[in-house]
């Protein structure tokens, strides 16, 4: 038996040889093999609306808390009100989305059963357990106008935790085997930070009077620069899985995100000088929807990269070749 197997096994031509070392992973290898083209990874079971929505709303809330605290400090009551209500509303919706996505929603409290630094979802649950009540207290203080001290303390606390709420979600998706998420772990938190800033700025532009929205306008422009810059860098550094961002539905979503965010920021630049409210409303809508489109684009790109075995196998082959084994 082994006599028959011998010549079959000993065929040198079948060994895949890598020419490209290290830096040209964009070139697909013709000799790539897979098991009937089946994915190596199991596809994320997360529902797009719930989880991409969760990423988006978390960002909107976190950055809004910063605006709220700043507005309180600098005497911009209308901006503070918008941002506080926005943060409380967004984080409540995002928690609802998270619970809705669970296979066993009734067991959502099991999230607080342990505190696990190796699990971003555990850390995030504890973070939200601290943050959400603060935003609610800040919003309640704003609406009732009572317990001012408690309200200000809650606003300040939410502003401290807000940036973490906006960026930890990048760790959440990067800490997986999904190539288009994991390989972007260095830049994705910055993309999400920028996207959070544009969303919160968009809400403030649309809902607060122009006279108080100056910080939001500047936040929109800076956030756009951070988001687009970090995203560009991420795709540039990622290697082969970056392709997943450039094809099909993710591509459409991300192109739309780019166009909406950039035009929203441009409008934000000029609308401070206009009497008309409509440009500010349009800027706000563009920024809010641009940020949402970005999260959905990133989500779907990850799923697409998990479903194609090339994105799993080829970078690993490159790695092995670079190690010389």
């Amino acid at each position: 038996m082994s006599g028959r197997e011998t010549p079959a096994g000993a065929q040198p031509g079948r060994r895949r040889r890598r020419r490209g070392r290290g830096e040209q992973p964009m070139v697909p290898d013709a000799r790539f093999s897979s098991y009937y083209g089946r994915p190596v990874l199991n596809t994320p079971t997360w529902k797009p609306l719930d989880i991409a929505g969760y990423l988006y709303l978390g960002g909107l809330a976190g950055a809004s808390s910063l605006l709220a605290a700043g507005a309180d400090l600098t005497g911009r009551p209308a901006l503070a009100r918008t941002a506080k209500l926005g943060a409380a509303g967004a984080i409540s919706l995002s928690l609802a989305a998270l619970v809705h996505d669970l296979g066993r929603p009734a067991r959502f409290l099991n999230m607080l059963r342990v505190l696990k630094p190796t699990s971003p979802m555990s850390m995030g649950s504890w973070l939200l357990a601290g943050y959400a009540p603060l935003t609610l207290a800040a919003a309640a203080g704003e609406v009732t106008g009572r317990y001012r001290l408690v309200g200000s303390a809650a606003t300040a606390g939410a502003a401290v935790l807000g940036p973490a709420v906006a960026t930890y979600t990048a760790v959440l998706v990067s800490d997986t085997a999904v190539p288009a998420w994991h390989e972007g772990y260095r830049q994705l938190p910055f993309v999400f930070a920028g996207s959070a800033a544009t969303a919160a700025a968009g809400l403030a532009l649309a809902a607060a009077p122009a006279g108080q929205a100056g910080p939001a306008r500047r936040m929109a422009v800076l956030g756009t620069a951070l988001e687009l810059g970090a995203f560009h860098l991420m795709k540039h550094r990622m290697g082969l899985p970056a392709e997943a961002y450039e094809r099909g539905r993710p591509r459409t979503l991300l192109r739309a995100a780019e166009a909406l965010t950039a035009s929203g920021a441009a409008l934000a630049l000029v609308c401070g000088r206009l009497r008309d409210r409509r440009p500010a409303l349009a800027a706000g809508a563009a920024l809010l929807s641009g940020s949402a489109a970005l999260r959905f684009g990133v989500f779907h790109a990850g799923v697409a990269s998990a479903e194609d075995p090339r994105y799993t196998v080829l970078p690993q082959r490159e790695r092995l070749a670079a190690r010389g084994s």
Binding site: P163, A166, A170, Y185, P189, F192, A197, L222
Partner: peptide, 21 residues
């Protein structure tokens, strides 16, 4: 490394907001 990058990004977001004000 992911947590480190996220912490830096969070700090950038806070700085960005502060710059706005």
């Amino acid at each position: 490394a992911m947590w480190r990058h996220a912490a830096l990004a969070a700090a950038s977001l806070a700085a960005l907001a502060a710059a706005g004000f």
